[in-house]
Structure formats: C-alpha cells, structure tokens
Design a protein around this nucleic acid. Structure first.
Lengths: 233, 233
DNA sequence: TGATCGCGTGACAATTTGGTTACGGAATCG
DNA sequence: CGATTCCGTAACCAAATTGTCACGCGATCA
C-alpha cells in the first residue's frame, strides 16, 4: 500500500537515504528540513505518515510532535520517530509525545519499512464509524451494509461512499464540485457530470425499495438528501 | 490489563529486575532460564506474551522464536525480544524470526511496559477459547474441529484460523490488510492476494456442506462472514 | 417562440477487482 | 529420507465498476 510520507530530517544525506528507500518501496515522499517547513507542508496536504527526526535545528522533533497531536486535523496522523542509537530517554519521551513508534539510527531499511507498514495498518481500522440512519434507510460502515426496511441493497463502492456522505450531511444542498471533493477526494480531476451519473445509479438502486425521491435535485445548485421527501402535487 | 508474561532470561539479576517491574505493573510472571525450560512452560500453559532474551545458553532466542512461530498453538503469542544495545542485525533477524517488537538492554522500565501494553492491545480481542457458532457452522478451538450439520470439515491450519477469526467477528467487513494482521500476525509481509486464495480454499471446503455463500465478498473493501447469507435479489 | 441551459438516461470502452488454477518450495508425516 | 500436505505467488480470465458521451426533454429566458 503506497502512502504519502513526510520525512523531516535536517541531515541531507540521511534524508536522501530515507527518501530513496521509501520511494523504492512505492511510497511518495515529501521532505522537510525542520519543523517549520514540515508544519507548512502538513498544513497544505496531510501525509499518511510522518517520519520525524528527534534532533532538529530550531524546534525539536518532540515539540513538533506535540503540536501535531494538539491540532485536531493532524491528531490522527501516525508518527515514527528517528532517534540516535541508545538514547533511551528519548524513546520514552518520544512515545510520550505521541509517537507511534521509533527507529534508531543507523536504521535498517527493512526494519524501517516493516515498522511503517505495521503503523499504517494499525491506524487504518481505527475509524470506528457509527451507522447512519435517515428516512427508512440505514447504512453501516462497519458491515458495509445498506438496508431499506430490512431489504438489503447492493451498491458499488462509489455509490456507497456517495450515499454515506449524503446521509451524514442530509437536508443540505451539495454542489457537484463539493461532492467530487468530499466523496472522490480533492485530488481528482473529473467531469462534474460524473456526479449526475452516480446520482442516477444511486436512485436506481433505491428505486425498488420505494425510497426514491430521497435524493432531490436542486436545479442550478446540486443535490440534496431529503430526510422527509417533498410530497408531490 | 494484567497479563501472564513468560520471561526467558538466563542472567538471574536481569530476570529478577524484569520480573519485579512486570509484577509491579500488575502482570503475573513465569520465568525460564533457557529455551528448553521455556518450551516446557509454554506447553503447559500459554502465556499472553513472551519476553525473550536474544542471547541464551543452548538454543538461541531466535531459534526458539522460530519454533514458537511454527507451532500451531503458540503461533499467535506475541514475542518481545531483548537485545544488547546496538546489535542492529540482531534486531532485523529478530523481526524476521517473528518477534513483534524488541527492547534493547539496558532497558527503561517505562519503555518496556509501554511496548508490552502496545503489543497486548494489538492482540487483545482474539483470545477466546470458546466454541464459535454462526449459521449452521460450529468451530471448536479446543478440539480444533469444524462441523457443519454434523458433517466434519477438513481445514488446513491457516484456513482454520481464518475461519475462526471470521466467525468471532461476523457481519463485519475486514480488509485484506486487516486479515493479514489478525490472522497471520502483523510481523509477516505477504501479498494481499494471498488472502483471496485462502478465502477461496475456505469456500471450497465449505461448499459440500451447503454453507457456501457464508463468506461474502465486498468489492473494493474486503470480506465478510454473513450470519444470514444475503437472499438473492 | 426560438435559443439555451440543466439534467436524466442509456450505452460504451477502459480500467479495476476478484476468482481460479497452476506451480515451486517449505514443512510435515510416515 | 520419500510422500504428502500446506502455503504463498504469479498468471490468466471473468465480472463489476467507472468515467464519458451523446441524445432528448423540459425549463428558462431574451
């Protein structure tokens, strides 16, 4: 599983070594030389994982880690600390500061990659999301099931995500651009009409349950999931 | 979370130090001076975790770890290795041999306890020895038997554990990565497709009993064991 | 009223994803 | 040790999914 990894390391040679190893394993790498640079990058785009040198010029790695943990948006990003060999207190302090793991320098590429993989996996299932319920519909992320009056619906992955988003933000008009951002991810470049097609597919899937009319079109603006469908006439 | 921890360490002073720390943290401690003693203890009663010195008289810690990983019953018991400071290859070899983590001597009690806690937390919910029953299926960990309507199923070790995990976590979608973690152990590095093949083998084994369709594919997400198979559309 | 615009709809080709089989190697069993 | 089972991976195939388009219809507006 390729991931976006931010490497925060002031020593150019080590940074390069890290980047090479990570890229060779298929990850994409962002680099920063100090906490300040790193903070800027993080603000711009959340990485999947941060490799953080303990000894940094300026703000220390530990302080930076603490900052990250304090910020609501970066709270969840796993951190692996790089410490000098045998700095025992550092390790403890690092774990205290919120690091998920640490690797000692000089590091073995294999171990580094192993730990990265382990941390990423451990993080993955942590989002325990609650089932959503709107109208007669029920969607459970954990079981990945959608039921309408005890009837089971079959949805493709995208339709599932789309419906999930709508159900967690009901009664509100979402533009096509917003939906592309929130459901597909803000890095994709797709035609806005694509949304129409998926809305159509969703409606079609809902149809046999009688819960169509749930997704309403707001002409000129976008779509909305109505908790209580507008009665006709 | 008090746990039963087996400490394998030949140096009496260190063993004592470890035991004191662990007991002070509420764990119960079993002690062994070498691999042979340890093997005997493990056979008698499975510990929740093994603290294993790398340098042991007689059989080395690495060899012992490998043995543990080979044995079906001890395969899942997490191992934390104790290595001398700075023995970098040892660490890698230890992880290869199946260790879940390592701690370098001299160790900080705080770090040790933190790592133990982390490893235990990762492993926690999979410790049931109760027979599981889902659909018409029954799986008994004690007798290592799987029966479907009084028909007996022949499963390989991996398929058995896979089915066991699914049956103890039914209705929930598990990604391939999650399954690798929970069924194989998070120290292994396998292709995700491997899961597919084992799922296939499981389904095949289930087939003659009529209890196929029990394991459902959730496209784009993973697999799920359905308590009540989805009625056809 | 004619021109546009917005959206529903069905079709399509390309891409993903999962199912299935085959195979070599390791481990296990007689 | 031979035979056999078990396992992980690669390769190939079938099916599902996806993003786009073209077409048509009703609404909107000048």
């Amino acid at each position: 599983m390729p991931a976006a990894i931010l490497v925060v390391e002031d020593e150019p040679a080590i940074q390069e070594l890290l980047a090479l190893n990570l890229e060779h394993a298929g990850h994409s790498v962002l680099r920063a030389r100090d906490a300040e640079q790193a903070a800027k990058l993080v603000r711009h785009a959340l990485p999947d994982l941060i490799l953080l040198d303990w000894m940094l010029p300026g703000q220390s790695g530990a302080a930076f880690a603490r900052d990250l943990r304090r910020d609501e948006r970066t709270k969840q990003v796993p951190i692996i600390m790089l410490t000098a060999r045998g700095q025992e207190q550092d390790k403890v302090a690092g774990l205290d500061a919120g690091a998920d793991d640490y690797v000692t320098k000089p590091f073995s590429p294999r171990e580094l990659l192993a730990r990265i993989k382990a941390v990423l996996r451990r993080r993955a299932p942590q989002r325990t999301e609650e089932p959503a319920e709107v109208g007669g519909l029920r969607l459970d992320p954990a079981t990945h099931r959608v039921t309408a009056d005890s009837r089971n619906l079959e949805l493709g992955p995208t339709e599932f995500r789309l419906l999930h988003f709508l159900m967690t933000h009901p009664e509100r008009v979402h533009s096509r651009a917003q939906l592309l951002d929130r459901v597909w991810g803000d890095h994709v470049f797709l035609e806005e009409r694509t949304v129409d097609v998926h809305i159509r597919r969703l409606r079609k899937a809902l149809e046999p349950t009688g819960h169509n009319r749930l997704i309403e079109t707001v002409r000129g603006s976008g779509y909305r999931l109505a908790a209580m469908p507008t009665s006709e006439v």
